[in-house]
């Protein structure tokens, strides 16, 4: 069939005509919000209360875009033998002009203090404004979607299994 002279020309015309009469795929972005998958990687959110200033995230970050400052505080617990020490977070900045959205900090965080949020509209006119401080990172928490439900067919978590076993033994 492709040996017929002009076959390619006709095919080109046919394809363009077909595309002409079918819907175009353009997304009217600022007018129509894009339909992103719920767990898209837009921006990193920080839950400050969960942070223990363990510094794992800052150390794991491949391009060193997390800046953390803290000081120690003594907490006097009534009845305890001696005051406890607690780390207080002074500064937690992520520089999104350096961040490459690898998500390693979120994986590394042992205390569920860092989360992915699908928000992505935080472009700035000045590159310095891309340095989000902890208050700004905290604001993103509101946009973090709920964690995915457990797989109903899946094996229960260790804690659940243990709790079930205890309940069965009792």
């Amino acid at each position: 069939m492709s040996g017929v002279p002009g076959y390619g020309l006709g095919k080109g015309l046919a394809i363009t005509l077909k595309t002409l009469v079918s819907r175009s795929t353009t997304q009217q972005y600022p007018d129509v919000a894009p339909e992103l998958p719920p767990r898209s990687r837009g921006v990193i959110a920080l839950r400050e209360e969960n942070c223990t200033v363990c510094m794992l995230c800052a150390r794991e970050c491949p391009d060193w875009c997390i800046y953390i400052d803290s000081h120690k505080e003594e907490v006097v617990v009534p009845g305890a033998a001696r005051p406890r020490q607690r780390n207080v977070l002074d500064r937690f900045d992520i520089d999104f002009s350096l961040c490459m959205y690898c998500g390693i900090c979120i994986e590394a965080c042992p205390f569920d203090a860092l989360f992915w949020s699908p928000e992505f509209e935080y472009a700035e006119y000045d590159i310095r404004n891309l340095l989000h401080d902890k208050d700004r990172l905290n604001e993103w928490m509101a946009t973090v979607p709920a964690p995915p439900a457990h797989d109903p067919q899946g094996e229960p978590s260790k804690e659940e299994a243990n709790a079930l076993k205890k309940a069965g033994a009792a």
Binding site: T16, L20, S22, T26
Partner: peptide, 13 residues
């Protein structure tokens, strides 16, 4: 417009 739609775009809007 025709060129845009033939390329699955919208063209000027």
């Amino acid at each position: 417009k025709v060129m845009a739609h033939m390329q699955a775009r919208l063209g000027p809007m």
